[in-house]
Amino acid sequence: MSTNKIDPNKWVDRYSDYLFNYTIVRVNDREVANDLISETFLAGLKSMKNFKGEATERTWLISILKRKIIDHYRKSNSKKGKAEIKIQYNDDSSEGDWLEENAPDRFDKTAEDVMENEELGVAILECMGQLNEKQAKIFKMKTIDGFDTEAICNEFNITPSNLWVIIHRARTILAQCLEKNWY
């Protein structure tokens, strides 16, 4: 049985989009999301020795991130007034060591919707892992960030024809990858 290993130098390439997507749904602010992920990476580096290899690296990073997000909510709640916090957290839980279960996992949006869309988002991001680096970057810029064809062509020094060939390959791979579960 092989245990999961840790490789921090690969974290950004492997997980940052996934972590970002997970966070932005919950905090709805890019700056805050970026900060929380920075903190997560640093906390991860500091507690690497606690990683037992039982969970995947990604699951482990998410568990750290979850705490950061809840901490963030806790802080912004305490700015609004302490009364709210009492409802959300157990009185007997000590600072920084309160139970995760007692905090709301999903915030404003309808839980089911968020969950299904999130699952879908994870599936898509995982399938994107099958693209090579250039395909993934170009596909993302074009499809998710909505950049102009011209802007992308300039950035990568390619012709529009090149771009559409890359987009075509990416879309074919993604459609095939998602076919099993989502079509």
């Binding site: 921090p8 130098n9 974290w11 950004v12 390439d13 940052s16 989009d17 970002f20 997507n21 932005i24 749904v25 890019r30 999301a33 970026n34 992920i37 920075s38 990476f41 640093l42 580096l45 869309n117 999130e118 879908l120 988002g121 898509i124 991001l125 970057k137 993302k140 998710i144 960030d145």
Partner: peptide, 18 residues
């Protein structure tokens, strides 16, 4: 899915920091 991803600049900053 409403996927949102982080910017390349941000990724670069994280890579260097890590």
């Amino acid at each position: 899915s409403n996927i949102q991803t982080c910017t390349e600049e941000q990724k670069k900053a994280w890579r260097e920091k890590i």
